[in-house]
Amino acid sequence: MLTFAIRRLVLTVPTLLFISFVIFMLLQLAPGDPMAQVPLTVPDEVKQKMREALGLGEPPLIQYAKWLKQMFWIEPKVLIDWMTRESALFGWLPDTNLYQGELRVLSWQTRSPVMDIIVQRIPQTLWVVGLSYIVGILIALPIGIYSAYRQYSVFDQAGTFITMIGFSIPPFFTGPLLIVVFSVQLGWFPSIYDTTHVVNDWDSFVFQLRQMILPVLVLALQTTAQISRYMRGAMLDNLRQDYVRTARAKGLSEAVVVMVHVLRNSMIPVVTVIALGVPSIFGGAIITESVFKVNGIGQLLITWLFANDLPGIMTLTFIFAALILLFNLIADILYGILDPRIRYD
């Protein structure tokens, strides 16, 4: 398994390069223009000059090579400098000062380093999207297990009903609905997320909870619905297997039979779904983030997509791709642990 993991990790590098190239060419092919949001009152000649100032006139391959250099040579230098200067972990090392003011990956829209903006967005994305994912999993697993164990019981029926309705109603409806009910009518929670809020005592923590609760609810509903359905289906398949009868026949308690034997064997599809979802935490939740103005990474991506900010989109999707590769690798390794019969070599 270790050799498998190492081989896959090494293979990741060319894969990522290939993916980044495909994404770059896709963005080149896609119609769109960073000048689209410039008012029509600005004459075309001025727009043309602005495009040239952004480096749009250069051949695509040169633009790609520039991005590669900035992303893999200059940005790491900035990162190392930051680590040796400010981070707690490596702060004791002497300052490296590798970065000498070379051109970093700059957003066309904000004219500032893309990575700085991404770093700025991570806290709210993790608070809201990350938390909702954890909440969703924590609710979904017990629901899935118990509904399968008591198939067609009232609990199962109710769970099925609620999760399926929850999944088939999109967040662009549930979000405004929660705002109307809880912010407008009841006035319990704010409808706008304050990204500058700092948690430093109990009161500010309560405030943070209050502003998080609505977006987390909307997102957790989707996650719960999805994962609990897969969990229930896989449990049902395994509960009927012969080994379950054997385990019961040799006198194991129900708890051990279900929670150890059956659960472990049912985890493969669930692990896949969870691993597929983790990178999307980073990707943020585009609709929910903009409904509640959480302004995390999802909102950043959609803003850049509409503004055709190629460096920004390119960098975000690249990080996203790297996370997808990483978590799918983790899922593959987990398969081997859950079911030792699975062999990759």
Binding site: I23, L305, I313, T317, A321, I324
Partner: peptide, 11 residues
């Protein structure tokens, strides 16, 4: 993995 990471809007 490639399809998972392609940005949908430009696609």
């Amino acid at each position: 993995d490639l399809f998972l990471s392609l940005p949908i809007l430009p696609l």
